[in-house]
């Protein structure tokens, strides 16, 4: 086995943790705010309708964008921390 394998394992676990957090947010804004919890958010008015409608039609897309760029930035940093980046 690669002598760096415990390092390798720690790198992979760190990646999985970032993915999990990101996917929780991903599901929360789309399936959560946009669909299942929309009735709970119906009291918050946004331009003639409610917050859930905004999340379903625009908000979720904006959050997806932030998530992907955050993931790219965080992972590229993690690659350097664990010395597994591409030279």
């Amino acid at each position: 086995m690669d002598p760096k394998s415990t390092q390798g394992e720690a790198y992979w676990q760190a990646n999985l943790r970032i993915i999990k957090i990101s996917l929780v947010i991903w599901a929360l804004v789309s399936f959560g705010f946009g669909i299942f919890f929309r009735p709970l958010l119906s009291g918050i008015p946004v331009g003639g309708t409610d917050l859930g409608f905004w999340f379903a039609q625009q908000g979720s897309i904006l959050v997806f964008l932030v998530l992907i760029f955050f993931y790219a930035w965080r992972m590229n940093k993690l690659d350097r921390e664990f010395d597994v980046d591409e030279q």
């Binding site: 990101s22 991903w26 789309s30 379903a56 039609q57 979720s60 897309i61 997806f64 992907i68 993931y71």
Partner: peptide, 26 residues
């Protein structure tokens, strides 16, 4: 599609963009 029914077809908006989060991470 969205014009014809409104909110219910937000599925296309979320579905066809949310896939990129999966693509980028998984």
């Amino acid at each position: 599609l969205i014009a014809s029914v409104g909110y219910d077809n937000s599925t296309y908006l979320m579905g066809w963009t949310g896939g990129y989060v999966l693509l980028a991470m998984l």
